[in-house]
Amino acid sequence: MFGLVGISWTSMWSPVTLAAFVALALIYLYITGPGRARFADSTPVPAAKKAWFVGGLAFLYVAFGSPIDLLGHMMFTFHMISMSFAYLVAAPMLLAGTPEWLLRPIGRIPGIKGLKFLVNPIFTLLFFNIAFSIYHVPLVHDFVMLNFAVHTAYYVLLMLAALLMWFPVICPVSSLDKLEGFRKMGYIFANSVLLTPACALIIFSGTAMYVTYTDPMMWATAMGYCVPQGATALLEMFSGPQALGWMDALVDQRTGGVLMKIFQEIVYGSILVYVFRQWYRKENPKAKNDDDSLDPTPAYFEMLRAQSEPAK
């Protein structure tokens, strides 16, 4: 596949990662299904909401367990596709699929109220965009890619930052849903602006900036975390990070930056349209569209629940 002769299917498809995400999906489906009775004040979770969460897990697997993840160590283009799937697509889907009653027990943890700043829109806005931008500084990126423990920890940090960044937009907790209308649209626009410098640095750089995509030994070291052969065997099997031969390192880097920006604009643009529709329907109840089957907000699912209950 993709010209990776000699790479095992287990390295390309990561069955361990797949098993982990399947287990998470089954646990979620049990908790929101038969296990819901264990949670106080729980309400039925519509199939549409479950689909959002399971779909988010599927995108995470594609990002971090499919051949896209492996190819992301060979080509910067696939690296940016992986990050787009994880942080711009999967993260909001997971939030959209999380019922409010499932998060309610977290609010009762001692000292948790002191961490309320973590969902403050200004903090979430800066946290994700700064963490993402710092990661793509060449020295930082290469250090993270060449150190497995740091690599894992930073990716977990970016996932947490992405979830927090999306929290003010797709807020599963109604009491914390403070942004409305134009403020929410302004928040999304600000995210788009703050991510632009990192993309511009990648796109308009005159040289290939990352040694893990240009230096064969550094590439083999980073790639060695994904396959069992080891760096020496990899260099015997492949000439280096350009083994696929699709494009040179600079073109690959620029393509990755462009794709990231395109993904960002599509996702943020779609969310802007959604938020505008929500605001417009709230201000104009008579103009409400009946086709709300994809609306992931808590208010919509509360409306579904109310409709499903027998009249008193």
Rank of each mutant, 00 (worst) to 15 (best):
V211C: 03
V273G: 00
D248E: 13
G240E: 02
I266Q: 06
I170W: 07
A220N: 09
Y155N: 13
M145Y: 08
V251H: 04
V211L: 04
D248F: 01
I134H: 00
A222C: 02
L194W: 04
T214A: 04
G186F: 01
D142N: 03
A208V: 03
G256A: 09
T214W: 01
L201V: 11
Q253V: 10
L235I: 09
Q229G: 05
L259P: 11
I188N: 03
S205C: 02
Q229F: 03
V267D: 04
L179A: 01
V267L: 08
V144F: 09
F167Y: 15
H141A: 10
C226G: 00
M209F: 00
L194K: 08
G186A: 04
M237Q: 14
S175F: 06
M218D: 05
C226Q: 14
G224A: 02
G240K: 07
Y187G: 10
V144T: 14
V156T: 08
A198T: 15
L272C: 07
A200G: 03
V140Q: 02
F263C: 13
A161E: 14
F167N: 08
C171I: 06
V227R: 01
V156C: 09
I170Q: 05
S175N: 06
L157W: 12
H151Y: 12
P172D: 11
F182S: 11
P228M: 01
N191F: 10
F167I: 05
D215I: 07
F263Q: 08
I271P: 00
K178S: 10
Q242Y: 03
A198E: 15
W166E: 10
A233D: 12
Y268A: 09
F204W: 13
M209N: 12
G269V: 12
P172S: 05
L201C: 09
V251Y: 03
H136V: 11
L195Q: 15
L139R: 02
Y268G: 06
E236Q: 15
M217R: 11
L160Y: 12
M185K: 09
F182P: 03
L250S: 07
L194A: 07
V193W: 03
M185D: 02
M145H: 10
L158Q: 11
F182D: 05
E236N: 15
G269R: 09
M145N: 09
L244S: 04
K184D: 05
S175P: 00
V193S: 04
A200E: 07
G181N: 07
R183M: 10
F238E: 01
W166Y: 11
L272V: 12
F204H: 07
M218E: 14
I188R: 04
D177E: 10
Y268I: 12
S192Y: 13
V211D: 13
M165L: 13
T255Y: 03
T255H: 06
F143W: 14
M159T: 13
A190S: 15
Y210N: 09
A233N: 10
P216M: 06
F143L: 15
A161V: 08
F204V: 09
S205Y: 02
N191D: 11
Q242I: 06
G245N: 01
D142W: 00
M159G: 15
I202K: 02
Y225E: 08
L195R: 09
V173N: 06
